[in-house]
C-alpha cells in the first residue's frame, strides 16, 4: 500500500442518486437532530443490518436534498473501513515521495474536515488505538484536527460530522471502545428488522416476489436462533438479500439459501445441515 487512498480502503461517494433505505424507527429524525447540533454519531449494530446504507442515505438527505451550500460538496461522505493495521497516519495523511521531494497527502479524515463532508469510520474498534485519540479533538467543542507532521491545527468545516460504527457482538469485542471515546458520541442502536420489514427490504433489494421475500425473512429470523453455534452475528439482512438475488437470477431458492446463508455463516457441517433443514421446511 503506497498511497493513503488505497491504504485506508477509502470509499467516497458522490451520492448522485438517493440510496434506498427503509427506516426502522426514529433513526432518521435522531440523526438529523444530531447533525443540526453537529453531535458526533455512533452507530451500533450487527454486521449487515444496514448501518452503512443508513449513513449513505443520511448523507444524501443532508447534502443532496439540502438547499444550503452543502449541496455543492462534491464528496459528501468519506467512508473508511477500519482494520487492525489502520493508523492515525492513514486517517490524517502522510508525506509521500514525489520526484525528489516529499509532498503532503491528506488522509480521508483530513479531507472531510476540510471540505465539510461526513466522515464515516466503519468498525472503528478494529483500528489501532492511536486513531481514536486523533478523533477526540474533533468530537468535542473544539472541533479541531491537529496534524502533527505539518504542525497544522485544522478547524473543522462547519458542515463536518464524524460518524463511527461499532459492533458490540463482533468477535473482536476484546478491542472495546474506551469510555473516553464512547462518551463523545450520541449512540443509535441498530438491530435486524422484524420479519415484515426485512421482507420488504429483501424484496426491494433483490427483486424477488413478495412471498419468497417473506419466506427468506422468516428463514433469517429462525436461523438467528442458532447464532450461538459459531456465528454470533446471526445471518445478516445482506446475506438474505444475496439469497434473494440469486433466486431472482434463476437459482432455486433452496440452493440459493445454501450458498448464501448456510455455508456463508458457518463451517460447522452439522449447523449447515440444520440450517438447510430449516430452509427446507420453510420454503414451499
Amino acid at each position: 500500500m503506497n498511497a493513503p487512498t488505497q491504504d485506508t480502503r477509502q470509499a467516497a461517494s458522490r451520492l448522485t442518486e438517493e440510496p434506498w433505505y427503509l427506516p426502522l424507527g426514529d433513526e432518521v429524525q435522531m440523526f438529523e437532530a444530531a447533525y443540526r447540533a453537529r453531535l458526533p454519531v455512533l452507530l451500533k449494530g450487527p454486521t449487515g443490518c444496514g448501518k452503512t446504507r443508513f449513513v449513505e442515505y443520511m448523507a444524501w438527505r443532508l447534502y443532496r436534498q439540502s438547499q444550503s451550500a452543502r449541496r455543492t460538496i462534491e464528496l459528501p461522505l468519506m467512508t473508511v473501513a477500519c482494520h487492525e493495521d489502520l493508523t492515525a497516519t492513514d486517517l490524517v495523511g502522510r508525506y509521500l515521495l514525489s520526484g525528489n521531494e516529499t509532498v503532503w497527502m491528506d488522509g480521508p479524515l483530513t479531507r472531510a474536515v476540510r471540505s465539510g463532508a461526513i466522515c464515516y469510520l466503519d468498525e472503528v474498534v478494529e483500528a489501532r488505538k492511536d486513531t481514536t485519540v486523533v478523533i477526540h479533538s474533533l468530537t468535542d467543542h473544539r472541533r479541531v484536527l491537529p496534524i502533527e507532521k505539518t504542525g497544522e491545527l485544522l478547524d473543522a468545516h462547519p458542515d463536518f460530522l464524524l460518524v463511527i460504527s461499532y459492533n458490540p457482538g463482533y468477535q473482536s469485542v476484546l478491542k472495546d471502545l474506551k469510555p473516553s471515546t464512547r462518551q463523545r458520541f450520541v449512540s443509535l442502536e441498530f438491530g435486524y428488522p422484524g420479519v415484515d420489514v426485512e421482507a420488504a427490504i429483501i424484496g426491494h433489494e433483490s427483486a424477488v416476489e413478495a412471498a419468497l421475500a417473506h419466506r427468506l425473512a422468516l428463514i433469517g429470523d429462525k436461523v438467528r436462533n442458532l447464532r450461538e453455534h459459531g456465528f454470533d452475528e446471526g445471518v445478516s439482512t445482506r446475506l438474505l438479500v444475496y439469497a434473494g438475488q440469486l433466486a431472482a437470477g434463476g437459482i432455486s431458492p433452496r440452493r440459493a439459501c445454501d450458498v448464501a446463508i448456510a455455508r456463508a455463516v458457518t463451517d460447522d457441517t452439522e449447523v449447515q445441515k440444520a440450517i438447510a433443514a430449516i430452509v427446507d421446511v420453510l420454503l414451499p
Binding site: K222, N225, A277, I278
Partner: peptide, 13 residues
C-alpha cells in the same frame, strides 16, 4: 441428535 437439536432450536427459538 445434534442436527435435530439445532433444527428444533432454530425453528422454535
Amino acid at each position: 441428535q445434534r442436527f435435530l437439536t439445532l433444527f428444533a432450536q432454530g425453528l422454535s427459538g
